[in-house]
Design a protein around this nucleic acid. Structure first.
Length: 281
DNA sequence: CGCTGTGGGCGTCACACGTC
DNA sequence: GACGTGTGACGCCCACAGCG
């Protein structure tokens, strides 16, 4: 099933993203899998926005498409898994991100917010350590706190983990070893370092939510939560754009296939016409 | 060489939707 | 209902090409 709100999409004058709507329209026109009910009529911008925002995710769309059309590749649930996750992490519950440290350890951030660290040499999931991110609500007793810091002046991002170590994001992905770049795509690389002198701006060290009393602490907690949310949203936006590009590529290939099919059918029709209605003169 | 238009990427905000 | 996630919209920046 092809969703049919494409003709309700509107483009902002300075729209900068590629016009997937145009492609979708082209595909829908060629394939004629669609009703044209909504192609007419005036819909106010609010309504259009409402409809637009209910559009299914690219992943859903593409996966539906792939089930209808053989040969259309699916968007995997997690790119990091499909592109060569280290074997000892492969059995873990779907991580959202996997990083490799300069010491060769793998850090997997699971969807629940748990961080797992594994050594490349260890078998299976042995050696994994599960940490709990502080954004996942009140940590259970004895939980390990991992602190996130806003990007510092040199463009790096840091996680503060127990044991006086800091997980620092490299400035550029290409700094990662080639084997890592192949395994993670555009995924940033992280290193475990000893912490520098003072905490970077925006860092609030471990304070369990229950122990927050003063307005200053509350404000710091709010700031920390905001930074965390922004970081997650940043990553989500990147991932969303990646999926969108993949989706557009898929549409382009589908257009090509359907155009070829269409051409063949037209030729076939012409042939049949010639056979059924020979010229009389 | 400076200006301008264009395209692509990124970060952020707002909002809908799904989950617990 | 709170919270997390996905995505459209917007604004900004940068690179590049074309032009005078």
């Amino acid at each position: 099933m092809w969703w049919h709100q494409h003709n309700l999409c509107f483009r902002h004058p300075i729209e900068e993203d590629y016009s997937s709507e145009d492609l979708e329209e082209k595909v829908a026109t060629i394939a004629e899998t669609d009703e044209s009910a909504e192609s007419e009529g005036v819909i106010d911008s609010h309504k259009r926005r409402e409809i637009l925002s209910r559009r299914p995710s690219y992943r859903k769309i593409l996966n539906e498409l792939s089930s209808d059309v053989p040969g259309v590749s699916k968007i995997e649930e997690e790119k990091s898994e499909e592109e060569g996750t280290p074997p000892n992490i492969a059995t873990m519950a779907v991580p959202t991100s996997i990083y490799q440290t300069s010491t060769g350890q793998y850090i997997a951030i699971a969807q629940g917010g748990a961080i797992q660290i594994s050594n490349p040499g260890s078998d299976g999931v042995q050696g994994l350590q599960a940490l709990t991110m502080t954004n996942s609500g009140a940590p259970p007793p004895g939980a390990t706190i991992v602190q996130y810091a806003a990007p510092s002046a040199d463009g790096t991002q840091q996680f503060f983990v127990p044991g006086s170590q800091v997980v620092v994001q490299d400035k550029e992905t290409e700094l990662a070893p080639r084997h890592m770049a192949a395994a993670t795509g555009d995924m940033p690389t992280y290193q475990i370092r000893a912490p520098t002198t003072a905490l970077p701006q925006g860092v609030v060290m471990a304070a369990s939510p229950g122990s927050l009393h003063s307005p200053q602490q509350l404000a710091e907690e709010a700031t920390r939560k905001r930074e965390l949310r922004l970081m997650k949203n940043r990553e989500a936006a990147k991932e969303c754009r990646r999926r969108k590009k993949e989706y557009v590529k898929c549409l382009e290939s589908r257009v090509a296939v359907l155009e070829v099919q269409n051409k063949k059918l037209i030729e076939e029709l012409e042939t049949l016409k010639d056979i059924c209605s020979p010229k009389t003169d």
